[in-house]
Design a protein around this nucleic acid. Structure first.
Lengths: 251, 251
DNA sequence: GAGTGGTCTAGACCACCTT
DNA sequence: AGGTGGTCTAGACCACTCA
């Protein structure tokens, strides 16, 4: 067990925030380095003298701030630094994670053919019931699962796609094996909470804070080549966009 | 009090998720319209037969998902639809909120002159201790506070800026009164939790889930004209970016 | 099998909002 | 003044992980 430092001057307020401050302080000064495990909730109970519910409130607060994360039924850990994601750049996951000095990996969870429901039929502009490829993958950074994604591809553009090794870059495969080139990208992002299934895959709890990123890629003819729904641990990503002027200035 | 509908077939799982599903169902079918108030926690306690802690777990879950929000010590309310924000477009808050059929408003909370600390001096490339304008504002959509922001401006570019009415568009003032035109924008976003002060201003609880947006605006000479830190209620915003190809494709 | 977090109970008092 | 959410306690049992 890692002994915690007391923290200096504190403002008044709820006890759980005082405990939060103390833990945050120990993370700041490096006493609790990234990736290390926090003392157990019952150890905090003893050392801090609060009820377990209060301890958990402090931990939930730190989780919401992105300072710590949990591994389901295993313990609480200090979050590693977030990866910066720039939707205006075309680099894929493997590329930009490596660029930032981290180690990415991809695990294909499932691949299958489905029939388009109304929503997907609308997105791909095909008849409802048309076949579509669906690929589910999990991606890790330095061994920690950070996102699950569900990719839908129109088999008309990439027949036999599912026979390839899908642990690398999908965009690369589409380009080199099928000559499909992405000409336009649409990206939607919003904070949300993890659904049960995604939470289990990421080894965390349903309802854990998360960021949903939906990417729709089009080729030069405006056809949808890839529809990608990503669910990120919210402490693993930050968005960065750098733009020169375009569009009308302000109001 | 609004009577709640029972919800149909349910999967096994924790009780708080069952209650979550029931409330979510009532929001979906419109029994609990946007902006309306939920029954009180103690009413749920009676009607659902759970302990209050379990009720609060369900509500916290719905809050994390962005379906409901709280007004401190007042009650729980159904979240209105989110506003779409496109960082690649130049439209200001007033413009894009209006475009989406909603009513924006701005309230200036404070304006003052400070001396640059190390971090700000670095951003503005001035000597530490140099004077800087700081403006704090709150912005609302349809009367609901959705963000607080802290804007820093170099007085060298806009002397006397604080004497203007700052409830409108700052970018407009900089452009029309000072001839300062934004040529480049850098935007950083990340999920986080509201600090105590921001939470109070937004009428919610510290630690409420939130999205931080930091905008740095440059003029054509590369000088920083505006440094804007925004703290959004996480259920009030979604990001949308639409891009044509640029940069190398993938890896 | 010991220990972890996940869930749940049944109370309590408080600060604050609302009427 | 009555009701609200905010905080806190002191237990309990369970499903699961880990050694």
């Amino acid at each position: 067990m890692i002994p915690m430092e007391g923290k200096p001057g504190e403002a008044a307020g709820p006890q759980y925030l005082a405990l939060r401050d103390q833990i945050a302080f120990n993370i700041e000064i490096g006493k609790l380095p990234a990736g290390s495990r926090l003392p157990s909730e019952r150890q905090f109970q003893t050392s801090a003298g609060f009820a377990r519910g209060t301890i958990r409130q402090a931990l939930a607060q730190l989780e919401a701030e992105g300072l710590i994360y949990r591994r389901d039924r295993s313990g609480w850990y200090v979050s590693p630094p977030a990866i910066t994601y720039d939707p205006t750049r075309w680099a894929g996951f493997m590329a930009y994670v490596t660029e930032q000095g981290r180690t990415p990996a991809t695990i294909t969870l499932a691949k299958s053919s489905i029939n388009a429901n109304a929503a997907l039929a609308d997105i791909f502009r095909v008849a409802p019931g048309s076949p579509l490829h669906v690929i589910e993958r999990m991606r890790t950074i330095d061994g920690r699962p950070v996102l699950v994604e569900r990719i839908t591809v129109d088999p008309a553009l990439a027949p036999g796609l599912l026979d390839h090794d899908l642990d690398g870059s999908l965009t690369q495969i589409l380009k080199h094996k099928y000559g499909v080139v992405v000409a336009r990208n649409r990206v939607d992002m919003r904070p949300c909470a993890l659904a049960k299934e995604a939470a289990e895959t990421l080894g965390t709890k349903p309802g854990a804070p998360s960021l949903t990123v939906v990417r729709t890629s089009f080729d030069e003819k405006g056809r949808v080549v890839e529809y990608d729904q990503e669910y990120w641990r919210h402490d693993a990503i930050r968005i960065h966009v750098d733009l020169s002027v375009r569009g009308e200035p302000d109001a």
